[in-house]
Design a protein around this nucleic acid. Sequence first.
RNA 1: GCUCCGGUAGCUCAGUUGGAUAGAGCAACGGCCUUCUAAGCCGUAGGUCAUGGGUUCGAGCCCCGUCCGGAGUACCA
Length: 596
Amino acid sequence: MTIDLILRDKVLEAVENLYQQKMPAETVQVQITRKEFEGDLTVVVFPFLRFSKKSPEQTAEEIGNYLLQNVSEVNAFNVVKGFLNIRISSSYWLSVLNSAHTNPDFGIKKHGGNSPVVMIEYSSPNTNKPLHLGHIRNNLLGYSLCEILKANGNRVVKTNIVNDRGIHICKSMLAWQKWGNGETPQSSGMKGDHLVGKYYVLFDREYKKEIADLIADGMNSDEAEQSAPLIIEARELLRKWENKDPETIGLWKTMNSWVYEGFDVTYKKLGVDFDKIYYESDTYIVGRDEVLRGLDEGIFYQKDDGSVWADLTADGLDHKILLRSDGTSVYMTQDIGTAKKRFNDYTIDKMIYVVGNEQNYHFQVLSILLDKLGFEWGKGLHHFSYGMVELPNGKMKSREGTVVDADDLIGEMVQVARKTSEELGKLEGLPEHEAEETFRTIALGALKYFILKVDPKKNMLFNPEESIDFNGNTGPFILYTYARICSVLRKAAEQGIEFQPLDMNIETTEKEQELIKKIAQFEHVVEEAGIMYSPALIANYVYDIVKEFNQFYHDFSILKEENEQVRNLRLVLAETIAKIIRSGMKLLGIGVVDRM
RNA sequence: GCUCCGGUAGCUCAGUUGGAUAGAGCAACGGCCUUCUAAGCCGUAGGUCAUGGGUUCGAGCCCCGUCCGGAGUACCA
């Protein structure tokens, strides 16, 4: 039991004994004392006044005395207005440090055979274009969320649903047929997903020209969009696909395989992976059958034109289409099918969808529809909704080419990492492939931290003009601190300094206790991140503790400390911080380097 | 129109279930490399927490109104 919980219980006990009143446990707030006040932990006594019927100062004084007498870890206390500041014995802090240092899995809960199974869907790309910065945010959040949930004792199934069918892919296919001259990734030297994306953009450009021509001939814009020859041809191609026309299916498979090869490269660079991949071309039929069953059972209704709808007005929403009048599936149909397949394939306790907040409404509807169809897990699904990445001039649009390409961005980051490192000249003498690996880790660390430190639910801005920073509150700063700790530990080993068991009676300075208090928070932060679904919590915590350590590192020498016990304490501190950085970064999907 | 989300320093972002004098980084300015890695450290400056009310011992956080920005509201995905 940690000290804040002990204090909470003892405060409850104190109020009971002193004022003969029982308070609910949540009335007690134990928080870390602000730096400018004397003490380690603070109890806010305002909420107790209605029980004590005394002034804040007097109440705090009485409870403080009770704690001093009844809790061995409490050394002293002082009262400022309604705040009871408590000084905890330094031997308690040392014991915290000691257990953090000796426990190899500090802060990480192990999962076992009966741990809950959480399935997390993330990434979910379309196969008509390469990944961009928006997808990067999705992938990084999804991957990190998996790591965080694992660290909280869950079994995690990482899944991906590939949107491999639909009009969008037909657009790329059509453009390639018309203007591709048989171009392939091999013949062009282009990465497969980029090649297919090129034709998607080309389609859009030609399509827009046709629309403009039609409008010039006097057609209104809606009509022009519907009747441009290219879109009619694309629809025809989709019909051919649905009818399993061999040539169309063949081209579809070929172009998709190019895209998958491309995605694999990008996923690998990002360091994300999946346990199970679903394809909409497999699941949309399952969904259609479910919708038809719902129609049979009177859950949905059919219009005269044959389209199938759900009436959600009773749930405060509107009517939602589930099957088009020609019987083909829409997005929602596919998601119903995918969900059903997943719950058939796995025993799932919780399903999480990592999807942008533009689809909040979609998931609200999906949840209700699954529930109506009789799936008990429908209501419990969780939409991990994250904000968009915006550019200075607004949203990214693939069709118009105003995107920050994932591969380009990663490449640029590696360039900057290499250039910076070479200027500083710190990796001289390291074999080239090892240096390259280090540059890559630093670059990805910068990118990942940049994305993950932001509250997931908020929109964030990326300015391509100013490349992602490597100084300050950044991934490289954290990695740099880690590398320096590693360096100290290496030198300690070279000098034959060995770790000894912590002397529990040693005096600790304020600064050392500050660090230990922060170390003690790690478990709590991991737990909180799991509850709030927030990698940002981890990121900001790690930054905070690293900054604190850096100041410490600057003010106190470790290896040159003469007193052996003190030196040992500081080495233990350094090693424990290194462990937290390693664990924290792992939860964010960021690798560490031992020199940079 | 309706629904949902956001607005904190010049810029990008933190800010624990409401707690003490709202914090970082970047950019600016001034210091610190003969000392465990200067991708670092210290200092200066920078705020009407969009805005007006309300709730209470206490509001950046909760409630209502207003303004600004974004998203959704498709037989697109």
